[in-house]
C-alpha cells in the first residue's frame, strides 16, 4: 500500500484545528496562548530541521555520521537531564551523566541492532536513528525523575543517611535506600505504560509503521522490542548515572557536595 504524502498546504490546513483549543485557552484566560504559539513554532522548526537532516543522514547512511548524530543527541540529553533534574551544570555531574547515557544507549543499540535484529549494515540509519531516538527520549525522562529524586531526597533526609553511616555502613550501604527509591520512581512510568499499551493508546512507533504500510503484526513485534529496549535503557542509564556521578559529588567526609543542587 502506497503511503499518502501530506503536502505543505495540507499540513498548514491541519493547523486550522488549533484555532479551537486556542480559543478555549484564550476564553478561559489561561495565559497559554503565547506559549502555544512559541511551542508550535519550535515544534515545526525543530522537526523541519530534523527532517532535512535525516534525509541527508539516510541518503549517505555512513556509520561515522550516524554515530556523530547519536553523540549530538546524547550531549543534548545530558544538558537537558541536568537542567530538568534541578542540578547545576558542573563538571562533576555533566561528565558522569554523559558517560552513563552514552553507555546505556550503546549497550541497548548493540544488543538490539546487532544481536537481535542483526542489521546487515553497522549502524544503518533507518533503524539506528529512530530506535536510538526513542530510547534516548525515554532515558532522558527517567533520568530526570531518578536523578532528581536521588539527590534531593538525600539532601532532605541527610540525618537518616548520616545515622546509617554512624552505624558503620559504607557509603554504598547507606545510599542503598535512596538508590532504591530513585529506581522505583524512574522505572514506574515505563512499567505503567507497558501494562496498558495497546489498550489505552496505540504507541508512536507502531502507528508510524502501520501508516508506513507495514503489517500490524510486524508493527507489534517492533513495538514490543522497543518497549523492552526503552525499559532496559532507562533503568540502565539511571543506575549508571547515579553510580558514576556518586564518584565525584561526595566529599571525603562522605557528605554530599550540595553545591551541585540548584535549591
Amino acid at each position: 500500500m502506497e503511503i499518502i504524502n501530506i503536502t505543505w498546504l495540507q499540513l498548514g490546513l491541519g493547523f486550522l484545528i488549533m484555532l479551537l483549543p486556542a480559543w478555549i485557552l484564550w476564553r478561559y484566560q489561561t495565559g497559554l496562548n503565547a506559549k502555544l504559539l512559541t511551542s508550535s513554532l519550535r515544534m515545526v522548526l525543530q522537526l523541519v530541521f530534523v527532517g532535512y537532516y535525516l534525509e541527508y543522514l539516510f541518503k549517505y547512511d555512513n556509520p561515522w555520521i550516524n554515530a556523530a548524530w547519536i553523540l549530538v543527541m546524547v550531549v543534548v540529553a545530558d544538558y537537558a537531564t541536568i537542567d530538568r533534574s534541578e542540578l547545576k551544570r558542573k563538571f562533576s555531574v555533566l561528565v558522569p551523566i554523559f558517560i552513563a547515557t552514552l553507555l546505556g544507549i550503546m549497550i541497548i543499540d548493540f544488543f538490539f541492532l546487532d544481536f537481535v535484529i542483526k542489521l546487515p549494515k553497522f549502524l544503518a540509519a533507518q533503524y539506528t536513528i529512530p530506535i536510538t531516538g526513542m530510547v534516548l527520549g525515554n532515558c532522558l525522562r527517567s533520568n530526570v525523575i531518578g536523578i532528581n529524586a536521588f539527590y534531593y531526597r538525600l539532601d532532605e533526609h541527610q540525618e537518616r543517611y548520616q545515622f546509617h553511616l554512624a552505624c558503620g555502613a559504607t557509603r554504598t550501604e547507606a545510599l542503598q535506600p535512596f538508590i532504591s527509591v530513585a529506581l522505583q520512581k524512574s522505572a514506574n512510568p515505563t512499567l505503567a505504560t507497558m501494562a496498558t499499551i495497546g489498550l489505552v493508546s496505540l504507541p508512536g512507533m507502531m502507528t508510524g509503521q502501520i501508516l508506513g504500510g507495514n503489517s500490524p503484526l510486524i508493527a507489534i513485534k517492533y513495538q514490543i522490542m522497543i518497549m523492552v529496549a526503552i525499559f532496559s535503557g532507562t533503568v540502565l542509564s539511571v543506575f549508571l548515572g547515579i553510580l558514576l556521578t556518586n564518584r565525584f559529588v561526595f566529599k571525603e567526609t562522605d557528605m554530599l557536595d550540595d553545591s551541585i543542587l540548584k535549591k
Binding site: H164, C167, G168, A169, T170, E173
Partner: peptide, 9 residues
C-alpha cells in the same frame, strides 16, 4: 533491622 544488615554489623 537495617543497621544490622550492614557488613560491619
Amino acid at each position: 533491622q537495617q543497621p544490622f544488615s550492614f557488613k560491619i554489623n
